[in-house]
C-alpha cells in the first residue's frame, strides 16, 4: 500500500493509503486521530475542514493525501490547547465565538493565516478572508470581534452582552 510521509503539527508522520486520491481530511481524522478539522461538505465550500499546508489554508476535504507528501500540515490541534491556546484561539475563547462550534476550527485556521500575512486587517479584510467559511448558527459577529481582538484592535461593537 502506498506510503506518504509528511509533517503534522511539528511531527513527521507516515500514513498508508490505498488510494492516492484519499482526501487529507480522512487521513487526519481517522489514521492520525486529529478530529479538529471537520467534514462539512466535501466540496471545499464551507471551510470547516481548513488546515494549514505549508502555512497556507487548504481544504483538507479536497486535498489528496498524495499531494501532501513532504509538506507541512498544521491542524487546529497544532496551534494550542485549552490550557495554552494560540493567541487567535485565546481571542476566540474570550469572545465565546462559537455556538455549535462545528465551523470554529476552520474559522480559527483561516484567521491564523490572515493575521500572519496581515497583522492589522480591517474589518472588511477579515470579512473577505473568511468569506469561504460558513457558519449556520449566526456567530459571525463574535468571530469578527475575536479576530479583531487577536489583532490587538479596538473591539468594534462592544462586548456582546
Amino acid at each position: 500500500m502506498p506510503n506518504y510521509r509528511f509533517s503534522v503539527n511539528g511531527e513527521s508522520r507516515s500514513v498508508e493509503s490505498r488510494d492516492p486520491a484519499q482526501p487529507l481530511l480522512y487521513v487526519l481524522r481517522n489514521a492520525l486521530g486529529l478530529t479538529g478539522a471537520k467534514f462539512g461538505c466535501g466540496e471545499g465550500q464551507c471551510g470547516s475542514c481548513a488546515v494549514l499546508l505549508d502555512g497556507k489554508v487548504a481544504y483538507a476535504c479536497l486535498t489528496p493525501v498524495s499531494a501532501v507528501a513532504g509538506r507541512t500540515v498544521t491542524t487546529i490541534e497544532g496551534l494550542g490547547t485549552a490550557l495554552k491556546p494560540h493567541p487567535v484561539q485565546a481571542a476566540f475563547i474570550a469572545e465565546q465565538a462559537a455556538q455549535c462550534g462545528y465551523c470554529a476550527s476552520g474559522m480559527v485556521m483561516k484567521s491564523v493565516e490572515l493575521l500572519a500575512a496581515n497583522p492589522k486587517p480591517t474589518r472588511d479584510e477579515v470579512k473577505a478572508a473568511l468569506a469561504g467559511h460558513l457558519c449556520r448558527c449566526g456567530t459571525h459577529e463574535r468571530i469578527l470581534r475575536a479576530v479583531a481582538r487577536a489583532a490587538g484592535a479596538a473591539m468594534p461593537g462592544g462586548t456582546g452582552a
Binding site: R29, T35, E77, L79, F92, A97, S105, V108
Partner: peptide
C-alpha cells in the same frame, strides 16, 4: 451571571468530542 460556556475552549482548540469524532 455571564459565565463562559465550558465547551468553548475545547471547540476552539479542536478537542471537543463531537458526535462526528
Amino acid at each position: 451571571q455571564s459565565l463562559p460556556r465550558p465547551d468553548v475552549p475545547g471547540k476552539i482548540t479542536g478537542r471537543h468530542l463531537f458526535m462526528h469524532d
